[in-house]
């Protein structure tokens, strides 16, 4: 019974893997399949594998996937356009054929009644597995340990980046900053902070420059990519509403003075080209 509930779920999740556009969603769908598989393992009298499936796959490997996804960029998603001509069609056709043939082939095989693992699992599944693993399969086991060590070393070697230039000192960083300012007009100080309005101090609210335009560099690139950045003109829409609530006589005597002060810095603030990104900053 459990199987018949889980099987459609798994197939659906697996099919979702083919169609979702965001990698994170794919990872979540894969997690569904993995956990369902763990349950199936339990049904199939494999408690050890059940535990390992949950711990290793959903716990470790999927986390690793997510970790790498975050490193690579959550916004990285497939475009719908297929670049290789005929690849998608051919893949579908061949895949369907392959699946059909497999299913037909399996259908030809009469499995008969299952023997069941009561006898084999006598004394505990883990104990029995350990018996086999450390007797008959001990060489293979040792070989996998070597494989894992090699993989760990390999991962370290691959992830390691050789430093080809001297590590920048604080002085050189400061000098570079000034040079950037002189040559490209990059601001000397930190990037403008988002959300300077009284009502919106959230990170998804871009700062406004004195002339009313948006300071794009004040919002995280990721938020911009997600399209969750609020638009400044939209924010300006309810200003009149607010004014009306506060009363028309509200004057802004400080504005003039602010204007004058801001006028001095206008050039400095409007010139940034926005290329000063988070990614580079993090380096």
């Amino acid at each position: 019974m459990t199987f018949w509930i889980l099987a459609p779920l798994m197939v659906a999740a697996a099919l979702g893997l083919l169609f979702v556009r965001k990698a994170v969603h794919a990872a979540m769908l894969l997690a569904v399949v993995m956990i369902s598989l763990a349950v199936l393992y339990a049904l199939l009298e494999a408690p050890f594998l059940f535990a390992v499936q949950i711990i290793v796959y959903t716990g470790a490997i999927l986390m690793l996937f997510l970790f790498v996804l975050m490193l690579v960029g959550v916004d990285a998603s497939d475009s719908v356009v297929e670049t290789i001509r005929g690849q998608r069609l051919m893949a579908t056709v061949v895949g369907l054929l392959f699946g059909a043939v497999l299913v037909i082939g399996i259908g030809q095989v009469g499995l008969g009644t299952a023997v069941g693992l009561e006898e084999a699992n006598a004394g505990g599944n883990v104990d029995r597995l350990a018996d086999i693993l450390f007797s008959r399969y001990v060489f293979a086991f040792e070989a996998t340990s070597a494989l894992l060590i090699t993989a760990a070393l390999g991962a370290m070697v691959l992830a390691h980046r050789e430093r080809v230039s001297a590590k920048p000192t604080q002085a050189s960083l400061a000098a570079q900053r000034l040079r950037d300012y002189a040559e490209h007009g990059k601001p000397l100080g930190p990037l403008p902070a988002p959300g300077v309005y009284a009502r919106h101090n959230a990170v998804d609210t871009p700062a406004l420059l004195p002339d009313g335009t948006i300071a794009e560099s004040s919002v995280s690139r990721v938020l911009a990519a997600r399209g969750t950045v609020r638009s400044a003109p939209a924010l300006a829409d309810d200003i009149h509403e607010v004014r009306r609530q506060l009363g028309d006589d509200v004057s802004m005597p400080a504005t003039a003075g602010k204007d004058g002060a801001a006028a001095n810095t206008t050039e400095d603030v409007t010139t940034p080209d926005g290329s000063h990104t988070d990614g580079e900053d993090s380096k």
Binding site: A7, M10, L17, A76, S79, T83
Partner: peptide
């Protein structure tokens, strides 16, 4: 027990097609 094997085959095939159609290396 055949249903388990059939499920396995279906999942395998879906995995195959996924490898062939998806472009994001992580997927």
């Amino acid at each position: 027990m055949t249903q388990y094997i059939v499920l396995s085959a279906i999942l395998f095939t879906i995995g195959c097609v996924g490898v062939l159609t998806r472009r994001n290396a992580i997927v």
